[in-house]
Write a protein that binds this DNA or RNA. Structure first.
Lengths: 203, 203
DNA sequence: TCCTGCTATCGGCAGTGTGCCAATAGGCGA
DNA sequence: TCGCCTATTGGCACACTGCCGATAGCAGGA
């Protein structure tokens, strides 16, 4: 069937998006992509150049369309609009859970179970060590606490990138952020656990 | 040259690690890996099975050896040991900056510049939106503030994974964490900017 | 010292996937 | 209806992975 340029392009992207959500990048072949789109293999190259370019286009489409949070239109920020933003963001993520986990959540690994597991175990171990370093018993800790520490780990990675990769932070600036944020976070979630946190946070 | 099993294995892993830090996974071929290790291509399969297995082995070696923070030995946690842990962690990362950025920092993409750029732009846009949602002008904001918001984004991704992927958090639990943490973080870093944050953090 | 078995190491074969390009077919305007 | 324009196809050439039989270097025993 002969389709218009944009239509065909969109159609290929849609089926490719579906496929890339089920398997990691390397296990998806151009023949699969082609047959899923109902076209010949050569057409994919005609439209996107290479398999990699097609994949990048898929990712672009995913991260572009649902630009995550929903800031309220024009009225200035208050706590109500912040609540609404977070809720809106969570709604969006939940609706496209599989998509989000595959592309953004997996950090671009493209749903690679083994690699994900390795990195995840390392991060979990790090979180436990952080708990240990703060004198908290991991076994009796509530799930929120572990989640906060895992979250702190994600934040630490971002701040480190800000320091070493993008160079928008000096080591000292990054250090202060890393130092202060965990006590403050722990205190805000479970105030009874770390009484010393407030003092450190104010330092 | 004929080497002992463990020696040869370690030698191959070392040169493979070097190679995987310079290019993304797909652009490293087995012939390259072989010639870098000074052996024939077939030997790599003999030792590691497949290219993917070799790569996983490299990643395992990297994330295992420097298990990130340094918890102080036995004495209970106080703020001094926490300071030391963070410093120790930063020293470790800084010493192996390239390695860390490639494997952990890039989230497993394996130094894929284009893909990284796409995801990074999306995250940057999200950070700006968050600033906007809280009524902060991005242009006049200090770099630490932007870094904190980027860090909050990393934390939000982790918490979302904790909710949707690992299922250790309910939606409500995740919501509360996401809601509370940003005001608290902002307040701890730049107290003068968001006076309303304290109230929200206590809610 | 020579022989023999073991195993690290090599080189090539088969299958698969990508990238590309010339040829084809289908639709729209004249 | 004819002809051009372009979407679409199928096949060719190359690269790479995975595997396996063949080879070579080293050890221990006679």
């Amino acid at each position: 069937m002969r389709l218009d340029y944009d239509e065909r392009r969109a159609s290929i992207l849609a089926s490719a998006r579906r496929l890339f959500c089920t398997k990691p990048y390397s296990e998806v072949s151009m023949v699969e992509l082609a047959s899923a789109a109902g076209v010949a293999r050569g057409l994919l190259h005609h439209y996107f150049g290479s398999k990699r370019d097609l994949y990048l286009e898929v990712v672009r489409g995913i991260v572009r369309v649902p630009t995550l949070p929903l800031p309220e239109d024009d009225l200035a920020a208050g706590e109500r609009t912040w609540d609404a933003s977070v809720d809106g963001w969570m709604d969006l993520i939940e609706a496209n859970a599989e998509l989000w986990l595959t592309i953004v959540g997996a950090g671009g690994t493209g749903r690679d179970p083994e690699l994900d597991q390795i990195l995840d175990e390392a991060r979990e171990l790090t979180a436990l060590r952080v708990l240990q370093a703060r004198g908290i018993d991991a076994d009796t800790a509530p799930p929120e606490l572990l989640a906060v520490v895992r979250g702190y780990g994600g934040m630490a990675e971002e701040i480190t990138r800000e320091w070493l990769d993008r160079g928008r932070l000096t080591r000292e600036q990054a250090r202060v952020l890393l130092l202060r944020s965990l006590p403050v976070l722990l205190d805000s979630v479970v105030p009874e656990i770390s009484p010393a946190a407030v003092a450190s946070g104010a330092t």
